[in-house]
Design a protein around this nucleic acid. Sequence first.
DNA 1: ATGAAAGCGCTAACAG
DNA 2: CTGTTAGCGCTTTCAT
Lengths: 347, 347
Amino acid sequence: MAITIKDVAQLANVAPSTVSRVIANNPRISEKTKVRVRKAMSKLGYHPNFIARSLANQSTRIIGLVMPSSSNDYYQNPFFPTILQGLSEGAQENHYSLLLSTGKTEDEIYEGVVNMVQGGMVDGIILMYSRMNDHILTYLRERDFPFVIIGKPYDYIEEITYVDNDNVLAAEQATDYLIKLGHERIGFIGGDVTLVMTLDRLSGYERALKRAGIDRRGEYTLHEDFLHEGGQAAAKRLLSIEEPPTALVVSDDLMALGIVHSLREMGVRTPEEISIVSFNNVLFSELSLPALTSVDINIFDLGYQAAKGIIHMLQTGDAPAGTIIPHHFVERHSCRSIKQGAMAMTY
Amino acid sequence: MAITIKDVAQLANVAPSTVSRVIANNPRISEKTKVRVRKAMSKLGYHPNFIARSLANQSTRIIGLVMPSSSNDYYQNPFFPTILQGLSEGAQENHYSLLLSTGKTEDEIYEGVVNMVQGGMVDGIILMYSRMNDHILTYLRERDFPFVIIGKPYDYIEEITYVDNDNVLAAEQATDYLIKLGHERIGFIGGDVTLVMTLDRLSGYERALKRAGIDRRGEYTLHEDFLHEGGQAAAKRLLSIEEPPTALVVSDDLMALGIVHSLREMGVRTPEEISIVSFNNVLFSELSLPALTSVDINIFDLGYQAAKGIIHMLQTGDAPAGTIIPHHFVERHSCRSIKQGAMAMTY
DNA sequence: ATGAAAGCGCTAACAG
DNA sequence: CTGTTAGCGCTTTCAT
């Protein structure tokens, strides 16, 4: 058995409650005894027991992290660790810890969250994604349990604290960029259609086309899980269209890389024959060939602000509204102008 | 206040301890009362409180995860999330949770670990790296606290439970491969030199050279943090050598990508002018240009087995020895043969 | 300024 | 088979 508050109390000749007060740095304890107690603590190598404290306090200073159930893809994407780094830093600064949800299927994850919440393991939850009709979100709302969502809520946006980019605007700008380069046959390759992020980027894409007076073609929009097939399916589909697009807006760098790769295998070169702009600007976007033109969404900040947000909620009790993290466009070498007479922008 | 065991007891007309026994599915309770108690539980929506249980049991069913302090690089590398996925799956299967260490500096991390351990927050620890003279390792050993290390222990290898690849052999094979292709001027680009993994790969590289009767040249071995500079520094250094290497063994795919990129910018093409074999075989190794020849070290398994290992230790009390995860060589297009008369192996 | 005592919710002897 | 009781280690009234 480890050193407890009682051992310290005994050595310092005070009551356990006094030791507790010293730990909390209660001002009603005289400096003298504080010093004496602290000496006893370090002499014994005392360390407070978190579990006991949590039980008494009804608070653990632990934040639960919930990942989407399509975890395989999520884990593979550099998006995930970066956001985790942001969360970690935000938590650390306020002396909070992070508990990971495990579980592969949606049910397993749901159950895990219920255990975390009802089991009193966490003071708050961060949902690392936003999707439509999410059971977990509903559950947390019903119980009125503090949570922050990374991404734009699908419903009840006024009542939920979230951290997000302006994905509609970002996608609109990305599409605009392609339009300015002279492209009209522009496709959109999205990720998981149940994620609000995907929907937002799609509507930004549509808005840009509309404003430019370009008709949107159904066959130019693809939504699938291309990570594992490395974009093969998407590439084939695109090339089978009679009038294939000359440019693509791709919802994610890794997907973009897969598509570039597959198209190349089928003899279509980027950016010579097809221009691509993608999202996230992860580290390898810069290192790939061609280097990817990408929208940097400040992934780290997304995590950092989410951590700050939930901690703020827990400490003050009030729920800040949505926080929008700025994005910026990073032009590299995966797009070329197809205006008549323009120079090719190649690597 | 939430529903407690007492509420259930009252409704079911039994003592709290009986409810506790029903939760534990104690065989000494009659089916009748079990049913009655369970009915009461679901009627009230009872959920056991983890904290209280942990305090009484002196066990949390939580495993602490410790990442290296050079976290920036670590987080950026797809290695990290994949290993986490393995850990997560191994934990989930046994109903354990994962607590992340936060903290950027070595001191912060150390303090975090001490809090986890002495605070009773975790039953065991997984060190996600192995480095020489690690304070944390020493601390855990001194306290005789259960832990598993991912990577080969630098010291006391007989006394520590670990999960690792045979990195020496893997690097030897990778180097052999290049030698067989006719290369003699082979360089080695390692990562953090305090990581045992780096040392092992270096010695495998040296062993292969030695066996082939090739003198090792000091200037062919580079150790730096190339992630952020995208390999610029390494590329420059290599090209400044009078007789630059014709092939490289690179300790990590992401680094390899950075070097390929930088060399390309300086006019040196892979694999035409320089062959590269790297490690880890992360997803984008296949998608990059050229696709990287890489040693697949089964990252997921590394994590999965580590989780299994610590849980086994916790449940049985005995400490399994080292587990070696097999690796395999994945030949792609980043190397070419330079034997006289041989065909170039290009993409 | 400090001590005594109750209690956070659960488990585990010990009785019966 | 089930109830009683005493903790797990800490916090927090309520006294003094």
